[in-house]
C-alpha cells in the first residue's frame, strides 16, 4: 500500500485513484502545463487521460479521519435513541400505521435516509 498521508491530503498511486476523489494538488505534465487543477474531482474520463499521459501518482484530499471517541459517542447516542423509541412504542402493534410511524422515526434517528 503506497499511501502517504499528511495535512488532509494523501498521495496515492494512480491505479488506486477512483472516480469521485478530489485532487489536493494540481497535476502537471513534464513541461509544467496543468493537466488537472487542484480541487478537480476525478472522473472516469480524466483518469483515463492521466493514464495515457503517463501520470503515476496523484495527491488527493483525504477524507475526514473519524475521531474514534466521537464516533463511539455517536454510536452510543444512536443506540440510546433507538432503545428509547422501543420504549415509547412499547404497546404499538407490529403491523399497521403505528408500526409505520415507528419505522419512520427509526430511520429519522439514523440520519433520515429516505
Amino acid at each position: 500500500m503506497s499511501a502517504n498521508t499528511h495535512g488532509g491530503s494523501r498521495e496515492i498511486a494512480l491505479e488506486q485513484a477512483q472516480e469521485g476523489m478530489v485532487l489536493a494538488q494540481a497535476l502537471n505534465d513534464a513541461g509544467g502545463a496543468v493537466l488537472l487543477a487542484e480541487g478537480a474531482t476525478l472522473t472516469a474520463a480524466s483518469l483515463a487521460a492521466l493514464r495515457r499521459r503517463g501520470v503515476e501518482r496523484c495527491s488527493i484530499v483525504a477524507e475526514e479521519a473519524p475521531d474514534p471517541a466521537a464516533w463511539a459517542h455517536a454510536e452510543q447516542e444512536l443506540a440510546r435513541r433507538l432503545e428509547r423509541l422501543a420504549v415509547l412504542f412499547r404497546t404499538t402493534p407490529p403491523e399497521g400505521s403505528g408500526a409505520q410511524l415507528l419505522g419512520l422515526l427509526q430511520r429519522y434517528r439514523q440520519g433520515g435516509q429516505a
Partner: peptide, 9 residues
C-alpha cells in the same frame, strides 16, 4: 413514562 397512543390506520 411517555407512551405513543394507538394511531388510526
Amino acid at each position: 413514562d411517555a407512551l405513543v397512543p394507538p394511531l388510526s390506520d
